[in-house]
Amino acid sequence: MIDIMTIILITLGGILIGVGVHFIPVGGAPAAMAQATGVGTGTVQLAAGAGLTGLISAGFMYNHLAISGTFTGLDYLMVVASGAVGSMIMITVTMFVGQLVYVYGVGVPPVSAKVKKDPITGDVQDLYVSRGTEGHGVPTVSFVSGTIGGLLGGLGGSMIYVQLMQIVGDPSNSGAVALAGIFATGVFYVNSVLASYNIGGTIEGFHDPKFKRVPKAIVSCLIASLLCAIIAVPIMGGVV
């Protein structure tokens, strides 16, 4: 019988990925020229990099905990938390090193052009925006926002992976592990691309006016993930 709870949790994972992408400050090609606030890469790219790093951590932790035969609720929390933390580490390291490049390699202070004052530190922003640009670097508010994005993305990816593995219930089945891994990757890409179409290129974080578009992404990711989840359950059930 199709387990409703599994489908709900996989869908929720997909939604978390979609929302997480909105938190990650990316400036696309302009940011690579220090012409926009955020990390100088594409939305999907950074979100996928962070989320898949989280997936690697979660896969490792799941194997570690579930191989003993019992998988408790606490273990579940451990695995998804591990995925979230792995993803957060990747994104914070990337943003921090990116910041070093902006400050020491390009010589511009981190600043947001969308707000007058940084909502977290209270620093004045607009005076530090150089002429003809829309901000540069990763100011604290964007950094914190990116960390939250990593958390949600990693959480969502790991939830999908764990749910799929739980259907099979056999962590030593290498076919199931690989299938769940690639399947989680596929669902991750679908949701993060949908979210990036919603953003349309660049976003600075949760203080950006574009962040108000989140509800649309939630609806889209809900529908897409639900469909994927309904399909996923018979696949994983058919493996063993």
Partner: peptide, 9 residues
């Protein structure tokens, strides 16, 4: 993802 976010800048 890391390469395009950091060094490419």
């Amino acid at each position: 993802a890391i390469g395009s976010s950091t060094g490419d800048v």
